[in-house]
Design a protein around this nucleic acid. Structure first.
Length: 556
RNA sequence: GCCCCGUUCGUCUAGUGGCCUAGGACGCUGGCCUUUCACGCCGGUAGCACGGGUUCGAAUCCCGUACGGGGUACCA
């Protein structure tokens, strides 16, 4: 082992001792039971919906216990960094109400909160480990390591840097000095405990209970190689140092980390630091032919938070859905209560759930149905500002019309319609109220009229007659009576039942007649009560749209 | 290869040895309500991965197998 002076010479002379950091980041003064949680995203592109899922649980645990939720940017892999990723995080977290209590824009005394800015801290601890003989420099090249892995695989022994394969673990001081003097690039490796091989690591996971794993035998890298600053730590080392110094109590992270817990435990022990507690959550999955897999950033648009925000799923609906995934107890509650109730770790599922957009849409529709027209107008506008610029102008120019349209079967009704599930659906579901967003049908043969199942001639005839007799009656029942009257005159049965009993005697039933008018006015076979729609539209629009069905032969 | 985590209706799940001829929700679907579209209401559909144990009794406990996910990186 190198002398203390030789080890210290590998680091800047003014590098603080670990005691300095311990005092600089003292234990937090929080009540008993307060949880300090953290999320450590890498700025490698868009934020994954799983990140929001984890953040939501972090926020819940910390707020419930009067603790703190910290956001730490894990940017130790500079090669994968993407420009603007941090701003994107900020926006996504704000949208879902899971902004951190502490990060670089809301410093809390435990920063900096980006790992790339914490280099000196890691170095202090790495040097300390080296002084204690618990870490050492390694000069192996990646070619050497790859070659060794091949040999290990051929021999059927576990691959890795351990036992006799750990070539620099017990190298002579002279060999080390020689490499250092020659300027060979080096990394710092942790010296796994000598008794690790063959022993087991045991720990308790807050979600899964007692877990057991082979103890780590690898001398894992803790400081990566780099000729110039920054010489960054690996995840394992950064996790231990940061989570200790930030005084994190509860680490909630993906289950892919379970296999790494043994090395983390060894690191805490070697540094003589108290352990954090762990909760490993199941990953969000996606259905694929023949099975399911983890939602992939690259392949699945619905893995991205942008997808949900862009589609216009309201944040409360998303949160309700995500909470239900975490604790199924919450899925069955009304939204407001589901958001207020705590997320319990021991109730979290252990198998990765599939993200079910049909279910999300259902929840979203339920939520929007509880909003007032004013609220919908406001939310919709906020969404459109970002994703549908041209819609904003239409909404602003027709505010009264918009509110009237939204009021149909919503205001003062026991069970509002659930026709709007996302903001992006607005154009499709309510667009026909606005001339700017509506394309009138193109004659009786327009394909939008096809689902009714009548001949174009019959459609034209009825539309023409209805148009001729049209009265803009305000009362919805009276309004519909005139439709019934015209329908009866033109051979439509008064009820579906009547029509079914004597098909040959009728052109269709009141249903078909109504649908002709519905498609004429709205372009769709689905819409709220026709009388109310017509009242909001106004007589001029109604007549013009009926004319459009009749077609060029009798343009009004 | 080795190690770890998992596996209840299509999906999310309840279920911790008898309350389970397995409950709820979404989806799909039949009907009712209705002058039209919906909403709502009532009903239906469909599941304990497989094989051995333990037990008077197992979805629940044990063992094995299969399948899925993850780890075995100077990625996180």
């Amino acid at each position: 082992m190198l002398s203390r002076d030789e080890i210290d010479a590998l680091f800047p002379a003014d590098l603080p001792e670990v005691e300095y950091w311990e005092q600089h980041y003292p234990p937090r003064e929080l009540a008993d039971g307060a949880e300090v949680t953290r999320l450590g995203p890498s700025p490698t592109g868009f934020i994954h919906i799983g990140g929001i899922y984890a953040a939501m649980i972090d926020v819940d645990r910390s707020r419930r216990t009067d603790g703190v939720y910290v956001l730490r940017i894990e940017d130790t892999d500079r090669a994968r960094e993407v420009e603007g990723a941090i701003e994107q995080f900020e926006r996504a977290f704000a949208y879902f109400g899971v902004s951190p209590d502490e990060d670089d824009v809301r410093p809390g005394g435990y920063g900096p909160y980006a790992q790339s800015a914490r280099e000196r801290i890691y170095h202090s601890y790495a040097r300390e480990l080296m002084r204690r003989g618990r870490a050492y420099p390694c000069f192996a090249t990646s070619e050497q390591l790859q070659e060794q892995t091949k040999v290990q695989q051929a021999q059927g022994v576990p691959s890795g840097y351990w036992g006799k394969w750990a070539m620099w673990r017990d190298a002579s001081d002279d060999d080390v000095r020689e490499q250092l003097a020659a300027g060979t690039p080096w990394v710092v490796r942790f010296r796994a405990p000598d008794d690790a091989i063959g022993s087991r690591a045991r720990f308790v996971d807050e979600i899964r209970g007692p877990l057991e794993h082979d103890a780590n035998r690898n001398d894992t890298v803790i400081l990566k190689s780099s000729a110039t600053s920054p010489r960054l730590p690996t995840y394992h080392f950064a996790h231990v140092v940061d989570d200790h110094l930030m005084r994190i109590t509860l680490v909630i992270r993906g289950e892919e980390w379970i296999s790494s817990v043994p090395v983390h435990l060894q690191l805490f022990e070697a540094l003589e630091l108290p352990q954090v507690r762990y909760a490993h959550i199941a990953p969000l999955m996606k259905q694929i032919p023949g099975g399911k897999r983890k939602l992939s950033k690259r392949k699945d648009p619905e893995a991205s938070v942008d997808f949900y925000v862009g589609e216009g799923f309201p944040a409360p609906a998303m949160l309700h859905y995500l909470r239900g995934l975490a604790n199924s107890r919450l899925a069955d509650m009304p939204l407001e209560r589901a958001l207020a109730e705590p997320i319990l770790l021991d109730e979290c599922g252990v198998a990765g759930p599939l993200v079910d957009l049909a279910k999300l849409r259902d929840i979203s529709g339920d939520h929007i149905a509880t909003l007032t027209g004013e609220q919908i107008a406001a939310e919709l506008r906020t969404w459109a500002l970002r994703f549908d610029e041209s819609l904003v102008a239409v909404l602003d120019d027709n505010r009264e019309l918009l509110l009237q349209a939204l009021a149909i079967e919503r205001d003062g009704v026991d069970n509002p319609r659930k026709d709007l599930r996302t903001w992006s659906e607005f154009r499709e579901v309510y667009g026909y109220f606005f001339d700017e967003l509506f394309t009138p049908v193109d004659g009786p043969a327009d394909e939008r009229l096809a689902p009714i199942g009548l001949e174009p001639d019959a459609i034209r005839t009825f539309a023409e007659a209805f148009r001729a007799a049209y009265q803009p009656l305000a009362d919805s029942a009276e309004w519909f009576d005139q439709l019934r009257a015209v329908a009866a005159e033109h051979g439509f049965a008064g009820s579906v039942k009547e029509f079914k009993q004597n098909r040959d005697q009728f052109v269709g039933s009141i249903r078909e007649a109504s649908q002709i008018v519905r498609v004429a006015l709205t372009g769709s076979t689905r819409s709220p009560d026709l009388g109310q729609v017509a009242a909001v539209l106004g007589a001029d629009r109604v007549l013009a749209r009926l004319d459009a069905v009749v077609g060029s032969r009798t343009t009004a």
